[in-house]
Amino acid sequence: MSYYVNDKWVRITGITLLVVAALAVDDFYRQPLTGVVFVKFLIDVGSTIATWHLNRTIILRFKARFPKNSEQLKRLSATFLTSTLSSTALSWCLRVLDYWATKGTLTQFFEEDHAMSFTINNWTLRLYVYSFDFLYGIQCAIFFMSVYGILFFIKDSSAYRNRLKQAEKEREELRAAHLQSQLDALKQHVNPHFLFNSLNSLSSLISEDPKQAELFVDKLSEVYRYLLRSNQQHLTTLETELQFINAYYHLLQTRYGAALQLDVAVHESYFPYQLPPLSLQLLVENAVKHNVASVKHPLHIQITVDRQARLLVSNTLQRKASRVLSNGVGLTNIIAKYQMLSLPQPIIEETEAQFIVMLPLIA
């Protein structure tokens, strides 16, 4: 695993400024331009570039290794220690090269004291051991960790804002899809054809079976009440959907009689699970719309839940001879809802005898 930060121009600017600063404070560069001065300049430029990229690599490696906020202290400690030791070792190698390039010998290099020491109450802390300048390494670690800490903050803040924008965009898309779903539901259900069939069935029942007619009116009002209520929510419980589909099935059975059979076998432990509203109704209506239903060859629809918490809606496949014109609602509507909710997509299977749709349920 790697961690990337776009710091190209930060490196170019930072290395340039560090080289300029070195030129400004080093009296050696005020001497006449000679080959030795030029070689020292090249070594200093290479030292700055190497030190920057060494610390950059260390910081990014530990950032990738300890990415969680809970690991921040471990990451900072490991980065600081590794950066200090690595910068110290690199600095030692480059100072040896610089000393040899400018003086032509290393005879007195190990005898000179180049670094600071601190004396407190006659106790001296030397940050220079065997020619290794640990103070320089500490300074490098603090400097580069500060620079990249700021870059990480900027990057994470930008990523957080982008996530917020993406979430807002998805919410708007979901809202638009939901509004379209409302319109589709009203177009499909609250239309003269549906109402005409329902009133015809009711009319015949009033004279033949008044009690059945009264029950039909109750179920019809229940269906319309649920249709209107479903327009105000993205998800509903499986129990609510099953209660609605029973009422809807009652209306269909009044019309089709024994030609239509619905078998619901869902354990009550799955009742609290959720799914987009009207999913079952769309699947049942699709089955009725596209298949032949007769007393001799009844259309059998089954609703179950498998062990993977998927709602299985299957129907016997006996397609009508003349293909029914579809208005694009139904399966397309359901799949769009699942996509907008970032849920696993429904699975559609068709065999010689059955048409099956598997809808993932949300725990």
Rank of each mutant, 00 (worst) to 15 (best):
M1E: 11
Y3Q: 04
V10T: 08
I12F: 13
G14H: 00
L18E: 03
V19A: 13
A24C: 10
Q31A: 11
L33I: 15
T34Q: 03
G35S: 10
G35Y: 12
V36D: 06
V39P: 00
F41P: 07
T51C: 07
W52H: 02
R56Q: 14
L60P: 05
R61M: 15
K63L: 10
A64V: 11
F66W: 14
Q72W: 15
L73Y: 11
K74H: 07
S83W: 06
T84V: 14
S86A: 15
A89C: 13
S91E: 01
L97N: 04
L97H: 03
D98R: 07
W100T: 02
K103N: 12
G104Q: 10
T105I: 08
L106T: 13
F109N: 02
S117A: 15
I120F: 15
T124L: 11
R126W: 02
V129M: 03
L135Q: 01
G137Y: 03
I138S: 09
I138Y: 04
I138G: 08
Q139A: 05
A141Y: 04
A141P: 02
F143R: 06
G149S: 04
G149H: 10
F153L: 06
D156M: 05
N162L: 02
E168S: 00
E168R: 12
R171N: 12
R175H: 10
S181A: 11
Q182C: 08
L186P: 04
P192E: 13
L195M: 14
F196Q: 06
N197H: 12
L199E: 08
L199S: 04
N200M: 04
S201R: 01
S203A: 13
S207H: 14
E214K: 14
L220C: 08
V223K: 05
R225E: 15
R229N: 14
N231Q: 07
Q232W: 03
Q233A: 07
H234Q: 05
Q243C: 09
Y249F: 15
Y249C: 01
L251A: 03
L251M: 10
L252C: 09
T254W: 06
G257C: 00
G257F: 00
A259H: 10
L260W: 04
V264Y: 13
V266C: 09
V266N: 05
H267E: 09
E268Y: 12
Y270G: 04
Y270L: 06
Y273M: 12
Y273D: 01
P277T: 05
P277R: 08
Q281F: 09
L282E: 05
E285R: 13
N286H: 11
V288D: 10
K289N: 11
N291E: 10
V292T: 06
S294F: 06
V295N: 08
K296E: 13
K296I: 06
I303N: 06
V305H: 10
V305Y: 10
R307L: 15
Q308P: 11
A309N: 13
N315R: 10
N315F: 00
T316A: 08
T316P: 03
T316G: 12
Q318G: 04
R319Q: 14
A321S: 15
S322A: 15
R323L: 14
V324P: 10
I334M: 02
I335H: 14
A336F: 04
L341M: 09
L343K: 05
I348G: 02
E350H: 09
T351F: 13
A353Y: 01
Q354R: 08
V357L: 03
L359T: 01
A363D: 07
